[in-house]
Structure formats: structure tokens, C-alpha cells
């Protein structure tokens, strides 16, 4: 009897606690959502723009290597079309695919360029963690839910909380709501880097073999098909790396194979001697600096024009 009454008291206390938590979570989540979409600058602003507002003719997709390597104005001049770079630091294939799905649901660009990195399809623990940048879009965007649910077994459970999608974001939102867009380094999505690397090029003879993540490989194929089905010319590019890689990379091999199966051009500049090994052209061993990004954009746009148009 005493046991039962104690249990009931505990359950009552827990019910009150979770009811209050639910109410506050709902209210705080609504406030965060309101301000999230009112950001005027920053990476989230760029993602919001890419997913919900971009209407440019040429769109670039990818990670930091896309964001720092493709200068939209160079492509605009070459193709006489508007261009926007949706690439985002630390975000890889599933991010690009999610952005592409959101764009294609409301807009048909005239050209899509997907930047791909070495090891991008590597299976690794916590490999989908970076998708947290898309969690604020989960509620309103059915198209990306399946991808976001890959983050963890209990992602759906976590997303009962309205503030969880904005985890770690509130100081960023607060800053970007008040910060002027003109203060941002972002130029149509392109974020320039300005340093030069200060170490000599390494020749990487061997790297440990890794397992390909079949979900990522399948997603990449779907990604390409999403453009093809809408008749949008699409090209896949591996932009330059500073170091020399002797070994072939399983991701690049897989990309090559899928692109040839899907009849989509794949341009591999990863070891292009015009860039690789040039200290003055790299900000770090994965990223070109601004001047080299312009040069690379010119090289890339020339090639794409010849191949696609």
C-alpha cells in the first residue's frame, strides 16, 4: 500500500515536471524558431537562403571546399547567369543533397555543380553528426526528414523537443539577428580565405583502406538523379588538394563509376599541377585561398562550358 502510494507521488511529481518542461520547451522553441529565420548573416542565414530563397541559375553544392573554392561572380561572367554557392563548412554529401532537395522542390536552376572530397563516403562513427545544421528545418521540410533521421536511432524522439533543433545556436542567432549582412565575409555564398600555407607539400604514399558507407553512396546516386530528372545539367568536381596523393581514393573511384553510369561529367582537379603543391595558392592543405579560388573557378567554368554547353 505504502509502496503504491509512493510510486503515485513520484509519478505525479514527474508528470508535473515534464508537463512544465513541455510547455516551456514549446514556448522557447517557438521564440528560437522566430529569431532563427530572422538572421541577417552567418552560416545559418546562408543555409536558410540556400534552402528557402535561392533562385540563381547556377548553384554550387558541397562542404567547406565548395564554399571556399567556387567564386560565383567568375561563373556568372563566364555563363552570363546568376550564381550562388550553397557550400557550408564541415557539411558533406547529405547536407548538399538535403539542400538540393529543398531547392528543387521550388526552383529549377540551369546548372548544378557538386564538389566532392576525398573520403567523403567513408563510413565513420558519428559521421552524420554534422547534419545538426539542418535540424531547424526538420519540422517544416518533409523531404529531408529521412536523411536527418539517420543521425541517430532516437533522432525522432529527440525532435519531440522544440528547442533541441536549436541546440548550441542561441548566441549565434542572437548575434546574427542584429549583425549587419554587409559585415559578413560571404559573397553569394563564397567565403574567401586569405592566408598562404607555410609548409612544403607532402607526398602521401599510403593511407589506411576504409569502408564505404553504402547509404552515402546511394544518396549520392539519388542526388545526381534528382537533377537529371528535372533536366538540369549537373557536374561533379573534385577541387584541388595541396598534398600529393599517390594512392587512389575509394570515394573518388566510386564517384567516377557512378558518374559514368549516370552519364554525368566528373572533373577531377585534386592533383592538378596548376594548384597542388603551390604554397601561395592554399590557405591550408584542404582549401585554396581567395586568389587561387578565382583562378580555379575560371579553369573550372571554362571546362564546364566546353563540356555542358
Amino acid at each position: 500500500m505504502k509502496f503504491n502510494s509512493s510510486i503515485m507521488v513520484l509519478l505525479k511529481k514527474l508528470f508535473i515536471l515534464f508537463f512544465l518542461l513541455l510547455v516551456i520547451d514549446f514556448a522557447a522553441g517557438a521564440v528560437l524558431k522566430y529569431f532563427f529565420y530572422r538572421q541577417k548573416s552567418g552560416l545559418d542565414y546562408q543555409t536558410i537562403y540556400s534552402m528557402k530563397k535561392s533562385r540563381e541559375d547556377i548553384l554550387f553544392f558541397g562542404s567547406s571546399r565548395a564554399s571556399h573554392h567556387y567564386v560565383p561572380s567568375v561563373f556568372s561572367d563566364e555563363f552570363n547567369m546568376s550564381a550562388y554557392n550553397t557550400g557550408r563548412d564541415g557539411n558533406f554529401i547529405l547536407y548538399g543533397y538535403s539542400v538540393a532537395k529543398s531547392v528543387l522542390a521550388r526552383h529549377t536552376p540551369k546548372l548544378a555543380v557538386i564538389d566532392i572530397s576525398r573520403k567523403e563516403f567513408q563510413r565513420k562513427e558519428g559521421g552524420y553528426d554534422y547534419l545538426s545544421s539542418l535540424l531547424p528545418f526538420y519540422e517544416d521540410n518533409n523531404g529531408i526528414r529521412d536523411i536527418l533521421n539517420q543521425r541517430s536511432r532516437f533522432e525522432r524522439v529527440k525532435l519531440f523537443s522544440r528547442i533541441y533543433p536549436y541546440n548550441s545556436l542561441f548566441p549565434v542567432i542572437a548575434l546574427n539577428v542584429v549583425r549587419d549582412k554587409s559585415k559578413s565575409a560571404n559573397i553569394n555564398g563564397f567565403i574567401p580565405l586569405f592566408r598562404s600555407i607555410d609548409r612544403p607539400m607532402k607526398t602521401i604514399e599510403t593511407e589506411p583502406a576504409y569502408e564505404l558507407d553504402t547509404f552515402l553512396v546511394d544518396a549520392f546516386r539519388q542526388y545526381l538523379r534528382a537533377f537529371k530528372e528535372k533536366g538540369i545539367p549537373v557536374a561533379v568536381v573534385c577541387s584541388p588538394y595541396y598534398d600529393k596523393y599517390v594512392m587512389k581514393d575509394a570515394t573518388i573511384d566510386s564517384v567516377n563509376e557512378i558518374c559514368s553510369q549516370e552519364a554525368i561529367p566528373f572533373l577531377d582537379y585534386s592533383q592538378d599541377p596548376r594548384f597542388s603543391g603551390h604554397q601561395s595558392k592554399f590557405d591550408d592543405f584542404h582549401h585554396l585561398n581567395e586568389e587561387a579560388a578565382r583562378e580555379f573557378s575560371k579553369v573550372c567554368s571554362d571546362s564546364l562550358k566546353k563540356i555542358l554547353f
Binding site: L20, L21, D25, A28, S168
Partner: peptide, 14 residues
């Protein structure tokens, strides 16, 4: 509730 909200808002989950 403050601690739970801090965990949801500031906790590192991944």
C-alpha cells in the same frame, strides 16, 4: 527545468 533546458540548449549530444 532550468537544468533540463540548459542540457537541451547547450548540451553536446553527438
Amino acid at each position: 527545468i532550468f537544468l533540463l533546458l540548459m542540457i537541451l540548449l547547450m548540451g553536446v549530444f553527438d
